[in-house]
Structure formats: C-alpha cells, structure tokens
Design a protein around this nucleic acid. Structure first.
Length: 337
DNA sequence: AAACAGTGCAACCGCTCTGAC
DNA sequence: TGTCAGAGCGGTTGCACTGTT
C-alpha cells in the first residue's frame, strides 16, 4: 500500500463543510449523479477531494437519510444485527433504511456499547460477562444438590452452568459442601451436561473446550458467530409481540427452553424487578415481563411499554434487573420445576 | 459567570477490497 | 499474473455543545 491520502494534495480543503459547499455538491449530484468521485469535486467547483465529497454525500447530504434519535426498534435491530454481523456497520446500515454506517457506528460507540458495558454485557460477544455473574449466591445455596443443578441447567446458559458445576466440583473436593450432597467428579459433569444439552448446543458453544471456558476467555468469539451462545435459544424479533423488543437477545435466554418446556415456570417463579435484595423470598418472574401471552399485545406496564417510554437509564435498569436474578437461600428448585 | 468535564457526532485517516488494464 | 487506481470500510480524532461545580 503506502499510497498517500487523496487529500494530501495542496489546495484541497479539509474540515467542516460550509453550506455553500453542501449546496454545490448537492446540486451537482442531483444534476449529474455522483459518477466518478475523484473527478466530481473539480466538475462541481469544489476544493475538496473526491473521498471527502463521497463521505459528505453518503453520510449527510443524501436525501433519504433519516435524522434524529434512533427509535427503540432501530436500536434493538442494531443490537441484534451486531450480535450476528459484528462491526459490519455497512451491512447493518443496509438493513436500517435511512441510517448510515457512520451514524450507526457512532451511535453504537457512544450509546449502546456503553450501556451494554454498564449492564455487564460484553459488547463484542453480546454475552453476559461471567466475571460479573454472581455464581456464588447460586452455589452457596444450602440445599443445592445435583438434581437441582441438572434442572438449573435448563434455566441458565449451559456454559455458565458448566462453570458453576466445575466450581462446585472443586468445592466438593475441598469438603465445603454438605456431606449428603453427592460428590460429583469432573467427568460426571461432562456426562450430565452432554445428556442434558443437545449436541448442537455444545458444538455451537463459543468455547472450543472447557479449559478455554474456564479461563474466562471471552475474547475468542468468532465475529461471525458472536451470538452462537444464544442461537439455540429464543431469538426475539421486532415482530414478536410476545417479547419486549428493546432488550438484547441474551435477556431472553432464560425464557427460552425452560419456559417453553415448563409452562408452569412463570407461574411458580414470580420474579419482579423490585426483587433486588438478597433476603427477599419473592423470587418470581413478573407475568408482565415473561408471561405476556403470545396472542395479545403487551400491557401498558409490560417490559415493552415500560422501556418504550423510558429513559436510557430505565432501559438499563430493566435489562439489568432481568439479569439480576438471585437464588434465595433455601430455595429448592424441585419445588417449582 | 467562568472553568472544567463529559458527551455526541461529523469528518478524517489508513487500510482492504475490487475491477480494469 | 501483477499492478494500479477507485471505492468502501472500520477506527479514530477533533471540536462543538451541554451539564456540573
């Protein structure tokens, strides 16, 4: 490479565009079309390089550009597409009429990315950051036993559960657990997991092996399959009225298999966003959040309605609350699964 | 009112891709 | 097949604006 930038030529203006320049460029393109961008500025009477003209036109002057804040639907679309496409801003922009790749990129970097980080989600992998996942509360449950863990597997990310099981295994070895609980050997964990999790779940796991997962190596998700950890779970779409449309895909993973396979789950569990203190016995999934009937639109106070009329912080709290479920002490999964 | 910090976004930079020759 | 130039893309920068002290 090593080719010098086209704007290095003397006499070519850089920096913000003036209204006069905008007018010249717009009028020229409306009359002649962009044609050759390198020759365009000369023909249009602009002291700019072609590249600058092209960027100005495609990112700002194009008549079909939509201005203003991103809607929640657009934001959700961006998050979903980014989970699949990665930083392919032009590909994402192609699916958002009126939005440019530059605009989407800026919006991602200044809004969505920060929000995901605040929520403990890796903006690259779209996976909850395991280093922030409080597995200790899960593992410290006095009555947590093997059968509970097996059933728990249907509720949480299999990879996260695998980690929990390995931690539990090491704790067993250290005799920190109740002696009545079965001692589980690491190879038994694998057998259990392999029996419980469809093989494609394992093959699509972003963790190529257990050690990689245990090392917390979240930075090795292939870009093209960043959402693989969720691909076997429910994939919300903007047309799916049964689900809030303004939360990232991973937020649905708990509702996925577990809820579809255990219709009574949402009635047994009544999680509400107000359930944030550790001592609460009100471990439950609010019907308005997870039990919205497929055939009916979400109620006004549902997740969707709440978010659509809320601030960014409220969006944060909604999604983080959705993630922030805790296992109360003494809770026996047998009771409600 | 002034200084400072934080935020958002337009524009630029440098690299890669692609097609023509 | 290799070279070159145009176009496109993703990352980064700089500045204007806004909020806070």
């Amino acid at each position: 490479m090593g080719r010098s930038p086209c704007c290095d030529k003397n006499g070519l203006k850089k920096g913000p565009w003036t209204p006069e320049e905008d007018m010249k460029l717009t009028q020229y393109i409306q009359m002649h079309g962009p044609g050759n961008w390198r020759t365009l500025p000369k023909n249009a009477g602009l002291e700019r390089c072609g590249k600058s003209c092209r960027l100005r036109w495609t990112n700002y002057l194009r008549p079909d550009i939509k201005r203003g804040r991103f809607s929640f639907e657009e934001e959700e679309t961006i998050i979903q597409l980014h989970s699949v496409l990665g930083n392919k801003w032009s590909a994402i922009a192609a699916r958002l009429p009126g939005r440019t790749d530059n605009e989407i990129k800026n919006y991602w970097n200044t809004h969505i990315r920060k929000r995901l980080l605040r929520m403990g989600i890796d903006p690259v992998t779209h996976a909850p950051r395991l280093d922030l996942l409080d597995l200790s509360s899960l593992l410290s449950s006095a009555q947590l036993n093997l059968s509970s863990l097996i059933r728990l597997q249907t509720l949480v990310n299999p990879d996260a559960l695998r980690l929990a099981m390995n931690i539990l295994s090491s704790q067993n070895e250290n005799q920190l657990f109740n002696s009545q609980a079965p001692v589980i050997q690491p190879n038994q964990f694998d057998n259990i997991i392999n029996q419980q999790i469809p093989s494609n779940d394992l093959t699509t796991s972003p963790f190529h092996n257990q050690s990689q997962f245990l090392q917390g190596d979240m930075g090795h998700f292939p870009v093209g399959s960043t959402n693989s950890i969720f691909q076997n779970n429910i994939k919300p779409t903007t047309s799916d009225q049964s689900l809030p449309t303004d939360i990232p895909s991973f937020c649905y993973q708990m509702k996925s298999d577990s809820l579809s396979d255990n219709s009574s789950f949402d009635q047994s569990l009544n999680y509400s966003s107000s359930t944030t203190n550790n001592n609460s016995q009100n471990f439950s999934f609010d019907n308005s959040v997870l039990s919205t009937p497929l055939s009916s639109p979400p109620p006004l106070n549902s997740a969707s309605g709440l978010i659509n009329g809320s601030t960014e912080d409220e969006r944060d709290s909604f999604c983080s609350n959705l993630l922030r479920f805790e296992i109360p002490e003494g809770l026996d999964f047998e009771d409600f699964i």
